[in-house]
């Protein structure tokens, strides 16, 4: 066998096989036009001429040179970079009038969150780890992923109220809406919610993110391509928090350590992905750890999209006194 000829012929054949079935998606030119408009927007912002805006361009330069954050002590320029980006994210979150949609995967199973104003809905699915659930809530590990439970707001009696629905046993309960709005920066609740597990912080995702960023413990750590967008990566400093007594007793641990990373679209400064990790320790139980990835979309506030942020109680479901009995 002539290896010289064979490698060349095999390579040629292999390339054909590797790319077999690869088809270009429609709209490449339109996407290119959109990308070009987006870069023009960023360049216009950079050309404003303030030191903070120039620092944003320096962020891109740092990324182009290698992508990893400098380990040297933060310089004045780096501090301005973070401050500029963080302020733009906070402004975008405060002024946006879009419906938040977050699809989460990770250790705690798949879930989806929608939020708009005071409305919100968090749905958990059984996923591959559980599949079809029995009325007892137990997993059969057969069949496909199903809707398992939902919590959030629902319309009942003509007004918005809190709701908790369990699909596996066809029950629901109603309660007054409780606000989980963080009251200050570095809110422990916000930090824990950002890192998972997948319990929703409620309607105020933007406020949670803002409160966490305002804590000042975040760094711009580079740029990451996500679905065709070169996002700005903002990494939160990991923290250790003491678990609330009830939770500590339930999980038989004392402490939780958690961290998160935000990926922000540089054209809109809205997050497009949030990742988080956490670990519990210090109690008699074995250490646990988990991580999650939430892909975020910001939907137009149409009637249909706003409706996603409200739970619809399925007909035929039985009302019970509280989630504790479900």
């Amino acid at each position: 066998m002539d290896m010289k000829t064979d490698v060349e012929e095999l390579l040629r054949d292999g390339m054909g096989r590797f790319t077999e079935g690869v088809r270009a998606p429609a709209g490449l030119a339109s996407t290119a036009a959109r990308l070009r408009r987006r870069r023009r927007t960023i360049r216009a912002a950079v050309a404003c001429g303030t030191a903070a805006v120039t620092a944003a361009a320096a962020v891109a330069t740092v990324t182009a040179a290698g992508g990893s954050a400098s380990r040297a002590p933060a310089t004045v320029t780096q501090t301005h970079e973070v401050a500029y980006v963080v302020n733009r994210v906070k402004a975008a979150l405060t002024t946006e009038n879009l419906v938040f949609q977050g699809k989460t995967t990770g250790t705690y199973g798949p879930s989806t969150t929608w939020a708009y104003g005071h409305r919100w809905r968090w749905e958990e699915f059984t996923g591959k780890a559980c599949r079809h659930a029995l009325p007892s809530g137990d997993c059969t590990h057969r069949g496909g992923s199903e809707r398992y439970l939902a919590t959030g707001t629902a319309r009942a009696g003509g007004k918005l109220t809190g709701a908790y629905v369990t699909y596996y046993n066809h029950e629901y309960s109603l309660s007054p809406i409780t606000t989980t709005l963080p009251t200050s920066a570095c809110s422990r609740t916000a930090r824990l919610e950002m890192s998972g597990p997948g319990v929703t912080p409620g309607a105020h995702w933007a406020d949670f993110i803002n409160a966490t960023l305002a804590c000042g413990a975040a760094k711009v750590t580079g740029h990451v391509w996500i679905k065709g967008v070169q996002t700005i990566q903002i990494t939160g400093k990991p923290i250790t928090v003491r678990l609330p007594p009830g939770e500590a007793k339930a999980v038989r641990e004392k402490w939780a350590r958690d961290g998160w990373t935000l990926y922000v679209d540089p054209a809109t400064y809205l997050p497009v992905r949030i990742t988080g990790w956490n670990a519990t320790f210090g109690g008699p139980a074995s250490r646990t750890s988990g991580s999650e990835v939430m892909d975020v979309q910001w939907l137009k506030p149409t009637a249909a999209n706003i409706a996603k942020a409200t739970i619809t109680i399925p007909p035929g479901f039985r009302q019970v006194a509280s989630p504790a009995t479900q």
Partner: peptide, 18 residues
Amino acid sequence: AVAELEEFLAERADRLLR
């Protein structure tokens, strides 16, 4: 320009992507 580019890509996009 976008429309002309789309037309240009109509027969070339698959191969270019490969």
